[in-house]
Design a protein around this nucleic acid. Sequence first.
DNA 1: GCCGTTTTCGGCCCGACTGTTTTCAGTCG
Length: 575
Amino acid sequence: MARPNDEVEALLREYADLIAITGKGAFKQRAYERAARAIGGHPADVATLDSKSLREIPGVGSSIADKVEEYLRTGRVAAVEETRASIPPGVRALLDVPTLGPKKAMTLYRELGVSSVDELAAALREDRLAELKGFGPKARENIEHGLAVLRQSGGRIGLDTALGVAEETVARLGEAAGCVRCAYAGSVRRMKETIGDIDVLAAADDPEPVMAAFCALPLVAEVVLRGRKKTTVRTVDGLQMDLRVLAEDSWGAGMIYFTGSKAHNIRIREIAVRKKLKLSEYGLFDAKTGRKRAARTEEEVYRRLGLPWIPPTLREDRGEVAAAQRDALPRLVTVDDLRGDLHSHTDLTDGIAPLTEMVAAAARRGYHYYAVTDHAPELRMQRMTLDKARAQREQLRQLAGEHGRLKLLHGTELNIDPEGNVDWPAEVLAEFELCVASIHSHFELDRDAQTRRLIRACENPHVNIIGHPTTRKFGRRNGIDADLDAVFAACARTGTALEINSHPNRLDLNDEHILRAREHGVRFSIDSDAHAPTHLGHVRFGVAQAQRGWLGPDDVINTWPLTRLRRFLRKTGAR
DNA sequence: GCCGTTTTCGGCCCGACTGTTTTCAGTCG
């Protein structure tokens, strides 16, 4: 299913959590977390590494390497199994509730026997937390709010996870006997930021072997229902997945129908009705005679409706059908349009890979330019200093020219303080080729304060990009409360770009914000915010959100040639 | 548990915020 590195990362993270909950040493816990991150972000497949190379991964010593090897060999690790036996899995799930950490989770389990999020909600309702030490009224209120945030994302999973499952399933079913075509549809194909369930389509004359292959997939935990045309399963992640099998000659109509969105489908069916046609998942038919007019491909069905093909990321009934009728669909930005990445980290701060590895990974992507933007000193835990930043700049200079056309830019990710000020005085900021500025704390300030703060950051002549502008994280916190339209206007006025942060847990700005910001004439930067070489590929998620926000290449500064980008970074020609 | 221009022991990312335990533990980034 997942790549072995991801499985190992998940296992080590789980073990780290269990160590924290059982109170077996903060340093041991951190060692496991560090190793988990290092392996998750390691470019080589751990399953192919020999013992020596495994131990060369920073943070992986002999104890952890042994466990990794045990896992790769047997699929389990005795030490982890033992700890699991003493702590029910639901206790670990309590850590997903914001404001609940390992200590409080353990107290809840030990004192009240709470061993799941549901039991926590029940205990809260029955006011059983009041008797516990360390759970005063405010703490209980915070937990209640935390549960609400968790519930909002509840049942939905990240686009990255869903895409992984969908792609894996399509690859496997494509090999099933008699399967002519296979593809995923639904919200995964529309690249929505979170996914409720996965829809997979297959074309086959005989559905039976495909259905059987589907039910036999290793990631299937339970077959919920099974019929001739449709089968529903639940995956090991608790995700619902539907497979529909149809005849090859209605493939296009089926793809349109199951890609949705529902609102988009209603819109195009209205057009069909006006043309005395009837559109279903089986095809586009003459309403009177029932004769099939189109069905084989999406293009053919749209064409018969008098429309050009509409990209799935636009199919949300946000005016795309009307635009298609006017032949005014935007030319959407694609991953191939990106000439560089303007927000990334190295192990000088909280990345896991050294500068040389990050740069090499950027070069492999064929970029024309690449900005290294490690954290600035105000984010204290990263221990950045001006000396370190300058040394990094020198190191970057020495790497210049080592990767063909790739131009390296030295930047930094500044911290926006509650007043909207950033690290370092202007003369120091001027040394950097670009500055990203982001909020990392004080998420609870009121709307006016947050708005002022962001606008002030935009007005700083050295701030080029506002990083992850709302700071939301799925399942962790909602974005800050700010008058975003005022912020968008300030960005347009000052020539400050807004980031579309591509990390699948962030996707910030989101599609609706992008649409609104675009109306203000804002420019965008689609960045990975990579903390490891493998993260550079996250831009596919950011690009998808940009498409959902109707952006073309011209709206996105990191599709521009370097000379044009540099002009923008000087912040003189705000439009 | 990892690691080493502090090198096989003794450190380890640091500081702010918050609520409540009135002197600090827990959580977060």
